[in-house]
């Protein structure tokens, strides 16, 4: 394959994968929803879970996006420094979003700030959003995809607390936000919390937390303990599916953390809705790939 052909191939795979994630939820989200439905007893909540499963079935069968809000495309790249297409990667991803918008189709959601004009193809200044991590020496490339819906992006929040407020202050910050906005953001929610130095790093980590598989826990034992406490607490608050009440209010809680200035306690919180459309694809240098979030995904040229 020529370089040009390889660029086209990666663009087509990414367009197809992004479209696939709009139609099919990742396996861990489906398993979690099944688990929540099986432990639910409230008849109204049960009928909402049944509607969700009927929708997932129809979306797959008809090949249509499972939610009309196909979101703002957010991408997190973990790229090997020796990946052959590293220089073209951003352009590949931008073109993939345009193709996915036309082919799936995705709803055109992106509006240029100040111009207030919908670009019609889900790209624009800084859209899709792309964050990078370079993996020295590797020749492959991993890409996390996320279709960030408006409804669950709306309650996102970050602030720098006084250290004296402590971890209890972090808990209050997260739970206040959920109590105020959680019912509107399509629960059961995936709650991502970032604890770091300043608003930017805390907010970034809170979104990164949403890329973690459901059921995973922080390798830090204290953070993992706090994840469990927050999960129990939010479930006890009784928000339930669609905010109408029920046993479970969250799919999970993930905390990502970093070291801080001794004088700051930065905290960010991001939310994923029940239809948490994240994907993860890992390419080898020859563009063969693995999609552990969506084992059913295949690419036919």
């Amino acid at each position: 394959m020529t370089r040009k052909e390889r660029i086209q191939m990666m663009t087509d795979i990414m367009a197809s994968f992004i479209g696939y994630t709009a139609v099919h939820l990742p396996d861990d989200v489906i398993s979690k929803l099944r688990e929540l439905r099986d432990s639910e007893e409230d008849p109204a909540a049960l009928s909402i879970y049944d509607m969700m499963f009927e929708n997932m079935r129809l979306a797959s069968e008809l090949g249509r996006p499972s939610c009309q809000d196909t979101g703002f495309v957010q991408l997190r790249i973990e790229c090997g420094s020796r990946f052959p297409l590293i220089d073209e990667l951003e352009e590949i991803l931008r073109c993939a979003v345009i193709t996915a918008t036309n082919n799936t189709p995705l709803r055109p959601n992106v509006v240029e700030t100040f111009d207030e004009i919908n670009t019609g193809n889900n790209t624009g200044t800084g859209a899709p959003s792309i964050s990078w991590k370079i993996v020295p020496g590797w020749d492959g490339c991993g890409i996390y995809t996320y279709l960030a819906g408006g409804g669950c992006s709306l309650p996102g929040h970050a602030a720098v607390l006084m250290p004296g407020e402590g971890y209890k202050g972090v808990v209050r910050f997260v739970l206040d936000r959920i109590a105020e906005y959680g019912t509107n953001a399509c629960p059961p929610l995936y709650v991502g919390v970032g604890i770091a130095n300043s608003v930017d790093t805390a907010a970034m980590l809170s979104k990164e937390a949403l890329f973690r598989p459901l059921g995973s826990h922080s390798p830090n034992e204290k953070a993992a303990e706090m994840e469990r406490m927050l999960e129990d607490a939010i479930n006890t608050m009784g928000i339930g599916p669609q905010g109408m009440g029920g046993k479970a209010s969250v799919l999970g809680v993930s905390i990502q953390h970093a070291a801080r200035h001794t004088a700051t306690l930065g905290v960010g919180v991001s939310f994923g809705c029940w239809t948490h459309r994240r994907g993860h694809i890992v390419f080898e240098r020859d563009l063969s790939f693995v999609t552990e979030t969506h084992p059913g995904f295949t690419f036919v040229q």
Partner: peptide
Amino acid sequence: CVLPAGNAVV
């Protein structure tokens, strides 16, 4: 009224 959301195909 609320319609259960995220069920766009149904």
